[in-house]
Structure formats: C-alpha cells, structure tokens
Design a protein around this nucleic acid. Structure first.
Length: 569
RNA sequence: CGGGGUGUAGCUCAGUCUGGUAGAGCACUGCCUUCGGGAGGCAGGGGUCGUAGGUUCAAAUCCUGCCACCCCGACCA
C-alpha cells in the first residue's frame, strides 16, 4: 500500500470523549470513527486489523472442522417467542416491525435462527455431529455502550453452534473448540488465558472464557502458580483456612469508637489488623426480611456466591439505612452479629477468627475480643468471599495469583435447552427421536482489536503483534519527493518486500520525516525501514523494530532478508 | 434506569460568572523559507455558539423545555 493514496488521518490530540487507551489510540490513528453511541465506522486502517483477526479465526475454525455459513442479521420475533427470550431479553434486544406490522429484531446472537435451521435440515444422527459458524455483525442495545469498540452496540462476532446426538459427542467438540480457541489467540500474538466461567444452570465446569490479559480489563481472573487451574474470580471457590481456630483469650469488652464508620477506620483506631475485624453486611433474605453476611475485614464479598446462598434473596440487595436501623438499632458502621436477631451466615475465614473486633449494634461502639460459641452462637458457614492473591488454589496445588482480563471468547455447553424449546430432534440408530445436544462458541472479533491495543501500547502509540498488524513493515522515504535516489530505493525495497510476500506500506507522503515516524509509531507498524540520502551514500538504510530504542544500519541489498529473518522467529 | 458532567470551526479548548460586532492552537487551501523526530512566516477558507422557546434595545452568555454525547452505578452475558 502506498500511503500517499491511503486515507491515513492521525491526530496529536486525544479526543475528549475517549476514556481508555485503546479507544483513544484508535481514534487518534484514524482506525474508527463514531457515528452514534456504540456505532463505529471501521476506517480502512482499522478494517485491515479487523480482517486479519477475522482471517485467523476463520482459518482455525475451518481447521477444527467447523463449517462457515451466513445467517440473516434480522430475525423474526416469533422464533424468539418460541424460546421465551422475546420477553426475557428485554430492551437489550433491538426490535422493530416491517410494513406488515410483523415483529423483528436485529440479532444479538443466533441460537434461535440456527436451531430453526437445524430442525428443518437435520433428520438423522448420521448427519451429526455438525459445527456451523458465521462471522457477522451483531447488535445489542446496551444501556451504556462505552470504551469504543470494546463494548459497542454493533460489533463483529464469530458465533459457532455445534449439534450432537449425545452429551459425550458435545464434550468432544467442546474440547475441539477449546483447542481451536487456544490456537486462535496464540496466533494473534496476544497474552491470554482460558478460565473456568460461570456455567449457570447447567453446572460443572462446562463453560470457559478466554481473556486477553490487560491491566484495564473489566474482569478479574485467578490462576494457580502450581497447576493449570484458572477461573473467573466470580466463580473461584475460596477454601476454608487450614488449622484449628485459636482458643478464646480475654473477655469480650465494649469500646467507644467515635467517628469510626469504615473497616479501615476501625482497624486503625483500635490498632488491630484488618484481618481480625469482622465485617457485617445486611442483605435482603429469601425468607427472613434481613440476613447478615459475615466476612473478615480484609475480604470482600463475592456477589455471585452470596446470591446463590439459599438464605439470600435474589437479586442480591444490600439493606438500606432504614432497614439496618430497624434490624440492628444503629447506623451501618456499627453493625455486628452479637445479639443480632437475624439469620447469620459467616464466611469460612470469618468463622476461624478468635478474639475479633466487630460492631456493637450501638452507634459509635464496637466489641473487642469476641469469640464464636462463647459470646454468640456458632453461625452457619459458607463460602462468601472473593478469592484473592495468595489464597491456596481450589485444586489444592499452588497459590492463586490475580490478573485482569478482557473477555474475548466464550465457549459453552448448552445441552438440549434450545432443542427442547424449539423441537429440534433427530432419529437415533434405534429409530427413536432425540433432542440434539448443542454447544455454542463465541469470539468478539472487534473486541479482540481493542484488547490487543490495551495489552500492547506505549507512549508513542499502538504496538501490533505481527499477525494482526495493519501492515507488517513500513518503508519510510526521507524527503523522497526531493531525492530521486531515495524515491527509487524506497520503491525498490517496497516492491521486493511485496514480492517476498511481506505486507509492506510505502510511506511516500510528502511529509517531514518526524511526521512520518510519529505516524508509523502511532499506528504501531512492527517494523520500519527508513531510507534517506544520508545512509544511501554508504549504501545503507535503517531498520528499527517498534519496540526498539535505536535503529540499526543495514545494507540496502540485505534489508529484505533482514526483515524476513526477523519475521521467521 | 438513577446520579454527575459536557455541548462554541474537522479536533482540543477559551469566551458564559459580570449580556454589547465569534476567538486561540492543531488540521485544511495558496505562496515563500525550511525539511532525518509532529517546522516557521505571510495570506486565506471554515461557525444558524446542540435545539426550541422566553426575558432584553441587545443573548454563546440569563431563564425554561427538549436532544445528543461522556463518566459513575444498577442492569445485561
């Protein structure tokens, strides 16, 4: 590509409405342009990256035996009525009517359409297993689209659906997809992790998310340093502490704690570690109006775990100030379990405390040296807290570390949920009709692009992994409109790179060198060859990798081989 | 949906408090100089100041409604 004929449109200034670095850089580099909230045009530069990701996904899906098709983006509402999701999906589903007043929606996902297709097409177990996928634009009417294409309303998704006679076949295909996803994300050059994810009503570890690791990720994931255990933190169990609870020491006493309303205040004012304070959270109960959840002061509540506890009402609702005063007789900062007449559920770690500090259920007072069994009854125990760094791994091997990730892929065993609702069945070898088992497998293709930037950038801009870079090499002509020597050499190198099968850009714009360098760094081209009169006098050009701090001189005739050797690494 | 914020040139923003002829930088066009790390000079084009109404001799500025966008949260997978 000759950049003189390519609509590159970079800016020095960061657009005011972009919050995260990938969004800022994509706008500054001219990769995307906003049309409306959550709707973006992919400019030629951005589209090149998007298509590279798309190609990798397509190649590996095909390699895995999945077969590509393309379904309509617009879907009839009646299909969604069949599965009950017309109502359940709520405003996330963009609905509209055609001229005959029939209901339609713009597809946010395609389980209904593909299941409808399969029930018409597939009659026999001999036609199974089958895995069909598409790469297509989806629309989800998010209440708050944000972060550019990271969470857009319209986005590009690869969605695959597999169909099987039984659960065993589904499990095999699931593993096939797990392996394919691993190859896909490995090929993009990104650092990623597959983690166990919330599997909803189905149970077992039959759902995995694939996360690109990045500090700015919205999800926390935990992983063991002693095994391959990795999970979304919302799912990771926190093991009960090993060892016996220490014996009680001195008698319980009441202390005045004026102005103390937070756990940090409490630990500081009484000079006890946070880990020996007890946090009491009042939430709405499923039977009792209020239930107290007890946690160690340094632990935080895992909302998913709390919500799944039978005593807790769904959805999880923290008690408001009035409810707290009615139940405990004090302000939120002084609530404690001693003498509190509501059901108590204690996290395992909280239950192994001795001589702890907690609220006294009187304003501005707390209790010291409180002990389970002695000063109050032993409460029910449960796993309520968020697992954290340093915790033992749930599989018993190693300790947990915590990282942040961006969810770019999700694979799931659906079972017969949709096939039953929509009556998608085949005949087995005994002639019996059986509902097909289904799996679904998604990749947020456009989100991968943003995630790649979140993970790979510096003060000068983006740093693309070679596999998804918009161009692999930039040939920058220094003042090439003034020097035929430079123009000819740059042109020759550019053509030689193309002939070698390397995706090169020739920066033949009539711009100053500093502008060109800055642009090539902003748009993150992995390799750069600068051609200028100064070096050509000695038969040399300059090579510089995007992460390098210095350039190196390479003979004009060797530069293509030089780049090629770097690419083969 | 709740809370907060912002709407002035393509972009980043000043001007609004205290009403009185629409501004700067970047970008863009032309000319000159310069040109191996986001050049300088001169000249120029570009605005119904988000929108509708109101107050006023006079509104970007004050008042009211509406719209759009952004942030936090809840929601969603």
């Amino acid at each position: 590509m000759r950049l003189s004929r390519f609509p590159l449109s970079t800016t020095k200034e960061t657009p005011a409405d972009a919050e995260i670095v990938s969004h800022q850089l994509m706008l500054r580099a001219g990769m995307i342009r906003k049309l409306a909230a959550g709707l973006y045009t992919w400019m030629p530069l951005g589209l090149r990256v998007l298509q590279r990701v798309e190609s990798i996904v397509r190649e590996e899906m095909n390699r895995s035996g999945a077969v590509e098709l393309l379904m309509p983006a617009v879907q009839p509402g009646e299909l969604w009525q069949e599965t009950g999701r017309w109502d359940k999906f709520g405003p996330l589903l963009l609905r509209f009517r055609d001229r005959h007043e029939r209901d339609f929606c713009f597809g946010p996902t395609h389980e209904e359409v593909i299941t409808d297709l399969i029930r018409r097409e597939i009659r026999s177990y001999k036609q199974l297993p089958l895995n069909l996928y598409q790469i297509q634009t989806k629309f989800r009417d998010e209440t708050r689209p944000r972060f550019g294409v990271m969470r857009a309303r319209e986005f590009l998704m690869k969605d695959a659906y597999s169909f099987h006679l039984d659960a065993e076949s589904l499990a095999e295909e699931y593993q096939e997809m797990y392996d394919a996803y691993t190859r896909i994300f490995r090929r993009t050059g990104l650092t990623f992790r597959a983690v166990q994810a919330d599997s909803g009503a189905i149970g077992g570890s039959v759902s995995h998310e694939f996360h690109v690791l990045a500090e700015s990720g919205e999800d926390a994931i935990v992983f063991s340093d002693g095994s391959d255990y990795a999970a979304n933190v919302e799912l990771a169990p926190a093991l009960p502490p090993a060892g016996e609870r220490p014996a009680p020491g001195g008698a319980m006493t009441t202390v005045d704690t004026p102005g103390v309303h937070t756990m940090d205040d409490l630990a500081a004012s009484l000079d006890v570690p946070l880990s020996r304070c007890l946090k009491t959270l009042l939430v709405r109960g499923s039977e009792a109006p209020v239930v107290a959840l007890l946690l160690r002061g340094d632990h935080s509540l895992n909302e998913l775990k709390a919500e799944r506890h039978p005593a807790v009402a769904e959805p999880l609702t923290l008690a408001d100030r009035d409810t707290i005063r009615a139940a405990a007789g004090c302000e939120p900062g002084s609530v404690g379990p001693v003498g509190l007449d509501v059901p108590l559920v204690a996290d395992h770690a909280a239950l192994s405390l001795a001589d702890f500090v907690c609220g006294a259920n009187r304003d501005e007072q707390h209790l010291r040296d409180v002990n389970w069994g002695r000063d109050l009854p032993e409460p029910e125990s449960a796993d309520l807290r968020e697992a954290g760094a340093g915790d033992p791994s749930p599989d018993g091997q190693g300790k947990l570390g915590v990282a942040r990730g961006i969810e770019v892929g999700h694979i799931f065993q659906l079972g017969t949920r949709y096939s039953e609702d929509m009556n998608a069945a085949v005949l087995d070898d005994d002639g019996n009709s059986r509902f097909v088992h289904m799996g679904c497998y998604g990749i947020g293709v456009s989100r991968v692009v943003a995630a790649a930037i979140e993970q790979n950038h510096d003060a000068n801009g983006m740093i693309w992994p070679e596999a998804i870079a918009p161009f692999t090499v930039a040939v920058v002509g220094i003042n090439m409109h003034k020097s035929t020597q430079v123009a000819d050499t740059a042109e020759r190198i550019y053509r030689a790179l193309l002939d070698a099968g390397i995706d090169a850009a020739l920066d033949d714009r009539e711009a100053r060198p500093g502008v060109k360098f800055a642009d090539m760094e902003l748009i993150g081209i992995p390799h750069r060859i600068a051609v200028g009169d100064r070096g050509l006098e000695r038969g040399q050009v300059e090579y510089r990798g995007r992460r390098d701090t210095d350039s190196q001189e390479v003979a004009v005739d060797d530069v293509v081989a030089h780049v090629r050797s770097l690419l083969q690494r």
